[in-house]
Amino acid sequence: MVKQIPLSGHPNNLAIGRSGKRVYVGIIQAPGGVDVIDTASLQRVKTLPTKGTIHNAYVTPDGKYVVAGSIQGKTINVFDATTEEPAWTLDMDLGIRPMTFSANPDGSTKWLFTQLTGFNGFAVVDFATHKEIKRIKNPDLPPGRSTVPEGSDPSHGMAVTSDQKTLVVCSRLNNALYSYSLPDLNVIGTVFLGGKGAGWVTLTPDGKKAYVANPVTNDVSVVDIKSQKEVALIPVGYVPKRNTTGVLQQ
């Protein structure tokens, strides 16, 4: 540790700007906001105001926008990453949980996907019009399978593969990882997991494998996207969540 940076309140999650010059920290403590950290000076330079306390902060794949979701405020708060000023806010009927994004051919953001409090599925928001265009419920369980009542929200954790062809969605309730085709959003795969909890997911950079954190059984499921099979179940520490993928240079 080289420095501790005081924040405006208790943090919940963070995102790194595409240039690496800024870190955006979601503040879960009232009144909320997104703290902006300058990585050169290691100082908090400002707090972006939000409508509600913040569960998670993100940067869009093109690096142009900072996006923050509020469970308490039921809002999606979007900021211009260049000016660090509000761009738009969308009020929803349920709290905002994990989000992810799909891109247009030119790299700009096409859709924002968000999971919602108490809902086993996700909403689709058109980034250009700032409107919800679809809400999709994850499939019902087939006969003989039981739900998992413990863990995170019913559907918590999602990601888009790097080729922009597949959206993967965790369902804690169904103990499954679902794959949806893009852009038509049809279910193209279901993997029932060996662990329990399905609380978060991260993808390898090539989009070939998904790693699902299972906080109920303290393990991580490794799913092969092409074959739609769980290929490993890795025991880890207590209550794994918010796993991410990092690329290290050798």
Rank of each mutant, 00 (worst) to 15 (best):
T75V: 08
A68Q: 04
L94F: 09
M99A: 04
N104V: 02
I96N: 05
T60Y: 03
P61G: 05
A87H: 09
S102V: 12
Y65R: 15
I71T: 14
T60S: 13
F119W: 03
T114Y: 07
G63T: 12
I133G: 08
A123S: 14
S102M: 07
G107M: 06
D106I: 02
G95R: 00
V67E: 10
N104Y: 08
E85M: 08
M92G: 12
L116A: 03
L112W: 06
D93F: 07
T60V: 14
G121N: 00
L112Q: 05
G69P: 08
P86N: 05
A123L: 11
L112T: 05
V78T: 04
A103T: 13
A87L: 15
D80M: 08
L94D: 07
V124P: 08
D106G: 00
W111R: 13
F79S: 00
T129Q: 05
D106W: 03
A81V: 14
V66A: 03
T75A: 04
T82R: 14
T109Q: 07
K74P: 11
I133K: 10
K74D: 11
I76A: 11
I76G: 13
Q115H: 01
G118A: 01
S108W: 00
K110R: 15
N120L: 02
F119P: 01
Y58F: 14
K110C: 10
A123W: 11
T83K: 08
A128M: 07
V124R: 11
V59S: 08
P105A: 03
F127G: 09
K110I: 09
L116M: 11
T89A: 02
A87V: 07
D80L: 00
E84A: 05
L90M: 12
P98Y: 01
V59F: 04
N77M: 04
G121S: 01
F127T: 08
V67Q: 11
T129M: 04
T82M: 13
T82H: 15
A123T: 12
D126K: 02
L112D: 07
W111K: 09
F79P: 03
P61C: 02
S102R: 00
S108Q: 02
S108R: 05
E84R: 00
T60C: 13
L116R: 01
A128P: 02
T83C: 07
S102K: 06
T60A: 15
T114D: 06
D126N: 10
G63P: 14
V78C: 01
F127M: 14
S70Q: 07
V59K: 00
L112N: 03
V78F: 04
N104F: 06
V67L: 10
I71K: 15
Y65C: 12
T60D: 10
E84S: 01
